[in-house]
Nucleic acid binder design. Structure first.
Lengths: 115, 115
DNA sequence: GTGTATATGTAGAAGTGCGAGGTGTACGCA
DNA sequence: TGCGTACACCTCGCACTTCTACATATACAC
């Protein structure tokens, strides 16, 4: 309980990955680190979630992959966004904005106390 | 697939229900209508999602229920928030705020570009 | 008496994240 | 030399939630 347990809402992981990959070619292990870093440790992507998601995205044709050498000299699988992936990211981002806005409406509705 | 399918992120339904019930005693059917109405039809709670969620929340002791007569004269199960439920709502709301903020950070990170 | 809105409920299917485990390399330290 | 840690990939099965149907029953309009 002391450690911040941040289960992320189902469906958001794909969007997050797509977004990080959109910044440029990057390998899986680094994606997880990026997300954790940018979110200030709020979001933590487990490897058991990361790699299956990556494979799903690749199978759907949203991500392309190439084996290259990482900064440390080891072989790593670098992912990059396809055109289809870019479109999907756009869609999901818009959808997320609408959803979070709608949820915000519900959450605010009670505070007004108009009832 | 073409129709605007608004699957809501897993875990948010409980929070939404708790929030709506927090406004005062209300029956299940009306909860779904409320959510849809307040969110301007963005969020639509299916009955197959609603009732199981309601029962879960009741089993966890977050919601209390009484059978009363609804506006239309039919018997309906009116739910109300327990103290435990109120605490849970508070926790989930805070958690949601942190999560959505963190996700917002990721989404913005690319636009700024440099990091 | 048929249909619609109200109101509750269940069953099965599908998808997704998580935990726990496994593989292998490279590096620092004792 | 041996050990632990960080890197970097992967898989399996569990648990959970939501969705799509379906089933039930009342009240009211036509």
């Amino acid at each position: 309980m002391t450690s911040p347990k941040s289960d992320l809402p189902q469906g958001t992981l794909d969007m997050l990955i797509l977004q990080v990959v959109a910044c440029g070619p990057i390998h899986g292990y680094a994606i997880a680190q990026r997300i954790q870093q940018i979110s200030r440790d709020v979001l933590q992507v487990q490897q058991g979630s990361l790699y299956p998601a990556l494979h799903r995205l690749e199978n759907r044709g949203l991500l392309g992959a190439d084996w290259k050498e990482s900064d440390t000299g080891r072989e790593a699988k670098f992912y990059k966004l396809t055109a289809k992936g870019r479109a999907q990211l756009k869609t999901e981002t818009a959808n997320w904005a609408r959803l979070s806005e709608a949820i915000g409406l519900i959450l605010q509705s009670a505070e007004g106390g108009a009832l």
